[in-house]
């Protein structure tokens, strides 16, 4: 599914990823944890092709696609979905209109016949209910005036509609109360599928109580420094990151 080899990337000439290796098989859920500034969000942006994130070495392939050779929108249509940590507002563009355009772009890329407005509305309503948002959210501007929790659930709603093969959740748990956290986790769990993989980026073990990962990796200073099963997350929760090999306390505090 996803294969990352020796990935090195920088932002404004500052090296952030320093040779990252990761392999994810279909159906697997991988959690990525690590201290602030380790490069967790950068990994999501580099994989999804955000402008300003320069890959200096290494490779990343999704199925047969060389991700690094594609535009951001092509990667999205190839099945890569990023749930944002801080989803941005697009005033005046309704959620429904936005998601229809996104779903259309995906279907068009696959050469499928587009859904009618009525068909799409039905699917959207279903997704909206599934993430426990009132239906009026379909009519409201994208993230316009949404609370933090509503924004995160809105991201999951988009994921439900786009049915990606690789989902990257960038701290989708931050700022959520326990109920919203459960909704997000249920949304993700409902999409677990032998063909769909997840990368769950999180600071806290809490989310992993609800989304059971197959693997947990610790990212520190641009590299994966430790991998293990779900129990590794519990260990980290108890001990912090300071015991990790190669972890520079001073730099992390800076």
């Amino acid at each position: 599914m996803l294969e990352i080899k020796n990935l090195q990337a920088s932002v404004e000439d500052k090296e952030i990823l320093k040779g990252l290796n990761l392999e994810i098989k279909p159906g697997e859920v991988h959690a990525i944890m690590g201290p602030n500034g380790a490069g967790k969000s950068t990994l999501g942006y580099v994989l999804s092709g955000r402008e300003g994130y320069e890959v200096t070495d290494g490779s990343a392939t999704l199925g047969n696609d060389d991700l690094l050779d594609m535009e951001a929108e092509e990667r999205a249509r190839a099945g890569l979905f990023l749930a944002f940590q801080y989803p941005v507002e697009i005033p005046g563009v309704s959620n429904l209109e936005f998601m229809k355009a996104a779903v259309d772009a995906h279907m068009e890329a696959r050469g499928e016949e587009l859904m009618s407005s009525a068909e799409f509305l039905k699917a959207a309503k279903l997704a909206c209910k599934q993430v426990n948002l009132p239906l009026e959210f379909l009519k409201r501007g994208v993230n316009e005036g949404f609370s933090g929790g509503e924004k995160k659930r809105n991201e999951i709603m988009q994921m439900l509609l786009l049915k990606p093969s690789l989902c990257i959740l960038d701290e989708s748990d931050s700022g959520l109360d326990i109920d919203a956290l459960k909704v997000v986790a249920e949304g993700v769990n409902s999409q677990r599928d032998p063909k769909r993989s997840f990368i769950v980026v999180t600071h806290y073990q809490r989310l992993l109580d609800y989304i059971k990962p197959d693997y947990v990796h610790v990212l520190s200073d641009g590299k994966i420094v430790k991998s293990g099963d779900a129990s590794l997350a519990k260990e980290l929760e108890a001990e912090g990151y300071a015991w990790l090999e190669g972890y520079d306390v001073e730099e992390a505090d800076a």
Binding site: S48, E71, E73, R77, F81, P87, V88, A105, V142
Partner: peptide, 8 residues
């Protein structure tokens, strides 16, 4: 970027 990440 949000729009492009959604395939637009």
């Amino acid at each position: 970027f949000l729009c492009q990440q959604r395939g637009l």
